[in-house]
Design a protein around this nucleic acid. Structure first.
Length: 270
DNA sequence: ATTCTATGTCGAA
DNA sequence: TCGACCTAGAATA
């Protein structure tokens, strides 16, 4: 379930659970065997998130553990002495806490220079206080690519995934096919601020909720529209269901290999 | 039992 | 634009 908010939440939880503690580290599944052995017994200092990437530092070690969950990955923190169930790429544990990483696209040790290069090549992250939205604007306003493509491009903006993309476009009534170059700066500024707020709420709650109170289905006498990912949304995976604002059936299509959802009436080109 | 799907990314064609 | 890859749970048979 990994968009940027998941990774920032995870960074916080891992730092809370393990920061300052010597941890035992292993790779039950085997594919991170050498890396796991390298950090075994060391003190975990901190974990930070940059977009959808996680970087973990250990005392006295130059290399940083780099994790990217990909589309299926999960990192679950639980109590002491959990049995290993299924494929666990990396297990971190203290006497009281166990964290299991499964199915990541990336779990590796990175030299500091490589970690810096990674941070350098991704766009501003709305969850970081030091992020500069104008860097994203520079790329968007100079691109003929559709805004739906640009929002998912991690070099443009880091941390947005398929749910936040669909919901952000809906909330600002932007046509997914609108070229970046045709988006106004005012709209972009509002989208960035909104995204930052939405994602911060996501970090707090661990879910993606994007529906404003006045559009909440309960207030309209209908059933809650809670998606499988656990949040309440306007369009994401609501294909064929009535738009919460205008009642038109929500549309879907595959856009650049990913499912895109939008309301054809609310999100018309202006 | 098998197939499908998923909040992602990369690299080849 | 397409397939490959990582995994688990849901859907289908």
């Amino acid at each position: 379930m990994p968009e940027g908010h998941t990774l920032h939440r995870l960074a916080f939880e891992l730092t809370e659970a393990f920061g300052g503690h010597a941890i035992s580290s292993s790779s039950p599944q085997g594919r991170f065997g050498a890396g796991a052995a390298r950090v075994d017994g060391r003190v975990l200092e901190r974990t930070e998130a940059w977009g959808k990437h996680l970087l973990i530092d250990f005392r006295g070690l130059r290399e940083r553990v780099h994790i990217h969950l990909g589309i299926y990955g999960s990192f679950v923190i639980a109590g002491a002495e959990q049995p290993v169930v299924g494929q666990v790429r990396w297990r971190l544990a203290t006497g009281s806490t166990t964290a299991d990483l499964r199915g990541p696209t990336v779990c590796e040790l990175l030299e500091p220079e490589a970690a810096d290069a990674l941070i350098d090549r991704i766009g501003p992250d709305p969850l970081r206080a030091d992020a500069d939205p104008e860097k994203a604007w520079l790329r968007i306003s100079s691109s003929r690519a559709p805004i739906a493509t640009l929002l998912m491009d991690q070099r443009v903006l880091a941390g947005v995934g398929n749910v936040y993309r669909a919901e952000l476009l809906f909330r600002h009534r932007v046509d997914p096919d609108l070229a970046g170059v045709d988006l106004d700066h005012e709209t972009f500024t509002a989208m960035w601020a909104d995204l930052s707020t939405l994602m911060r709420a996501g970090v707090r709650t661990g879910r993606i909720d994007t529906v404003d109170p006045e559009h909440e289905p309960e207030a309209m006498g209908r059933d809650p529209r809670v998606d499988d990912h656990g949040g309440e949304v306007y369009v994401y995976r609501r294909t064929g269901q009535p738009c919460l604002v205008c009642g038109t059936a929500v549309c879907t299509r595959v856009h650049a290999g990913r499912n895109l959802f939008w309301c054809p009436r609310c999100q018309q080109r202006r």
